[in-house]
Design a protein around this nucleic acid. Structure first.
Lengths: 211, 211, 211, 211
DNA sequence: CATGAATGAGGTTTCATTCAT
DNA sequence: TATGAATGAAACCTCATTCAT
């Protein structure tokens, strides 16, 4: 029905892949700029100079486009963050790397994060088993962090007297608030915030005998 | 044109004050339940058995109603939180009281917080100088917390080697994420989370020579 | 959500009943005139000088409006036809009354029938168990006729050597073709056709020993 | 501009004739299957694996394609029915052959008839002088039957006390209802219906002194 | 001969808003 | 005070059509 969705047997054209990416980027920027509610297809189309009809041609509809936006951002984030985290070996170093690489990514791709926050806050794509887009768990971040914290606790890499679930939520909150904060205060200094947050959670999780 | 807004000279009648409050409550519950996007005036009106026309009569329009919702929630929150914070004298105790009373208020008024989060994430009411509703600073929470942390630092009530601005943002983030988290996970245990968050920020701010 | 649908407890206003009837009539005439496919809500609204928005206000949507049209026509038809049929006692007389009253109704309400034919041919409202609108069997005509023919056969009121099912279909066909024929040939003489059809099926069903 | 329409001087190539036929068949099947309203060019193209652009190339547009469908079906029907009718010599035999060959053709080409019914009911191609496609009379069936009945009456081959026009309409109705009936009731037994209808109209038209 | 890409019109639906009663 | 009635804008979606390649 619509091309490039994998539904048809034919591989997507080069031009088409480019257009899709272009539209996805336009959607991200538009949502980040004017908010989800006002990011109509017409407005998104205007940004790249295409008609709203074309979006219907390349994507199944608005829902599909939004899905692709989420997938795009999540994948870009993972590609950035994962290597930096797993390059570290000790617990505190990993946690620091996690926080700092998350915030560095946000700093580098402000509109990406703003857009995702906008989308998720609109409650789209919420199912009974969490936040899912085409079967992929978009809310996986907190869960993965939870598991990693618990694992590091078990290995004695982090102090044992905190609840890893609550800690994961608090850490993700400190990270995820940034897009929102940027909207409220364009002067917000992410680098400074990054250092401070890393320090806060370092103090809250570092085993007492290390430094 | 519309009563009770201060625009007319006449004081609002009792009936009117009650109706306005009733509608504001209905708006809060509706938004919390079905989300901002689907909270049409008709739906809000249905909840209290009032026509949408009447909402237009009592409020200038949807925007005005939403403003009143924000004001209502902010004031209710302050009335709950402020006394509990200022009942404490030491820095760490105040911070703990701040975090715990905030979360206790959320626990007691889930729909209030969910509604506010829904509204704010829709980007309404953002001005160049932050989040303002009829001149009142809705985002004042972080700023007040920032100032209070700085003051306590200056008095030696809290350790001096953290940035109070960043700390305030992180603390607010840990608090404000709760409504969102509730939506994602209805099983979320606020009381446990409250204790853990208080502990995290206690460790991050308590002067080294106290306990 | 929308008034007069029986969903709300309140009884529909007089004005509202009138408007609904007015819009239903307009829909019938519009569909009869320009065909189902081109009978947009805007066009229907134009005919009575109301906005398409109002149709959405009085009816749940286009589907609901179409349903109401069907119900309206079917009920009007029954009210006309039933008494005339059951006023007769012998088999041949009943059949003649059935055919003639059907065609007389069509003659009197051409647009009604044209509209229904238009709607039904669009395949709307077809379910596995026939043609249903809100649980009512719209295609009941052929079935009722089938049963009545079989009953009259059993009583010796009609000859026994025809298949009542096939006969019912042929009779309904001769009746239901009229709206279509009117469209093709506005000069079509229903009265003459009515007599001829009654005669055709009289000859095909009258017991051999009667006259 | 578009080939094979007779507009250009060049004769249509073999490939082109084949493609056109292929697309026409696809259109017939698609319309029969999903209905006229949902038979978009894209969908029709999918069925034979060609792009909708190609349809625009081979036909002037959707209207033209639909015209070709009608012409195709009418011609196929004639080729089937005419020889069978004119193989009979007596009036009653001809009429029986007419009815039965019509219904046999429908039985053998259900999608052809369903498609035509779908198309005609959409009111396309109606002109002041009946149903015309490129000057050809699509609704000729009833007229031809009318004339033939009148001719046979004049020759004493059929009884003289019926109106041949009304009779023709009733007969065509009994025939044309079948596609519709098939849609409503997939179990519909055409062969049985065919016999019964032939009998009905035999009784209505056979001269009283023959058997 | 054939396709993919792109447009723009038209349709339904939802809603905030206004107005007469 | 309060309501029902009505409007009009804006959104999404589908599709026939056109065009460059």
């Amino acid at each position: 029905m619509c091309p490039g969705t994998g539904a048809t047997g034919k591989p997507p054209t080069f031009t088409e892949v480019a257009r899709r990416a272009q539209i996805i980027e336009a959607a991200i920027e538009t949502i980040a700029e004017v908010g989800f509610a006002k990011a109509s297809l017409a407005r998104i189309g205007q940004r790249v100079g295409v008609s709203k009809g074309l979006i219907g041609y390349h994507f199944g509809g608005k829902d599909d486009l939004i899905k692709q936006v989420l997938i795009r951002v999540v994948e870009a984030g993972r590609a950035y963050i994962f290597p930096r985290v797993f390059a570290e070996s000790t617990g505190p170093a990993r946690l620091r790397a996690y926080i700092e690489s998350n915030l560095a990514f946000m700093s580098a791709h402000r509109s990406y994060m703003v857009a995702v926050v906008e989308i998720l806050r609109h409650g789209a794509f919420k199912t009974d088993s969490g936040l899912r887009v085409d079967g992929r768990d978009i809310d996986v971040a907190a869960r993965l962090l939870h598991e990693e914290l618990a694992r590091l606790q078990g290995q004695g890499e982090l102090r044992s007297d905190f609840d890893p679930g609550a800690m994961a939520v608090a850490i993700r909150a400190a990270i995820d608030v940034v897009p929102h904060r940027i909207i409220l205060d364009p002067q917000f200094d992410i680098e400074n915030y990054s250092r401070e947050v890393a320090l806060i959670f370092d103090r809250a999780t570092r085993p007492s005998d290390t430094n």
